[in-house]
Amino acid sequence: MSARDKKLELEGLTVSFDGFKALNNLTLSVDPGELLCIIGPNGAGKTTMMDVVTGKTRPDSGTARFGSGNNLLEMSEAEIVAAGVGRKFQKPTVFERLTVFENLELALAGTRSVLKTLRARISPEQDNRINEVLGTIGLSGRRFELGSTLAHGQKQWLEIGMLLMQDPELLLVDEPVAGMTPQEIERTSELLLSLAGEHSVVVVEHDMNFVRSIARRVIVLHEGRVIAEGDMDKVQGDPKVIEVYLGV
C-alpha cells in the first residue's frame, strides 16, 4: 500500500514540555477502515499524540497528514473537525446543562458558522438521524434529560454518540471503557467493531482484556515512541513490552 492510501500518517513527531519529551520522533499510520489500538504505560504520549492530531498541541518537529493531502499541522481545530477527524476525550465531557438530544444536535454534521446556526432548524432527516443514534447508544428514553444527570457509562456513550453524529472518517477514542460495568464494556466493544470498516478508528486504552477483544493491530508506545507493533499475542510476547510493563 502506498502512503497516499493511508488515512492518517504521522512522521517524526516530537513534542517537548520543559525538556521532557512527551513525543520522541513518533511515526505511525492508520489504514482506511482499520481499528487500531494504542496501549502504553502512563506518560507514554498517547494523549499528546491525540492532541497533535486534533490541533490542540503543535509539535516541535515532524509531519501529520490526514486523508488525501490534509496537513494537520497547518489547520485549526475547527478545520480538522470539518475535514473529518472526531475525538472522544479521556474524561467524558458532555455538555452538562444541555439535554441529551441537544448534545447530539450540536454534534450534527453540517454548518458551524455563527449566522447559520442562528437560523438553523432540525430537518426531519436530521431528527431521524438523532433518533437512530439515540437508539444505538441506548439513550432513547433519556433524550430530554440534562447531560449532568447521566451515569458515567452513559456519558461515555453519549460522547461516542456525538462522535457518530459528526460522521467522521477518523475516530480517536481515548479510554472509552474507563469506569464501565462489564456489560457496558461488552456493548462498547460491539459498537466500536461495528464502526470500523466504514470509519477508521483509533482506540487508546489501558484495559488489556478490552483491547484483546477488539484489536486487530496493536501499537505499544513508550516514552513517546513506538516500541512494538502487531497483533495482541505478538505484542504481549515482545521482550521490550514486557520490560516496560513489568519493569524487568
Binding site: T54, E77, V81, L106, R112, Q166
Partner: peptide, 18 residues
C-alpha cells in the same frame, strides 16, 4: 446552544468543529 456549550466545555465545543 452553542454558547451554552462554550460556557460548559469550551474545548469540547471546539472539537465539535465550532
Amino acid at each position: 446552544r452553542v454558547l451554552h456549550a462554550i460556557r460548559d466545555a469550551e474545548s469540547r465545543t471546539r472539537f465539535l468543529g465550532y
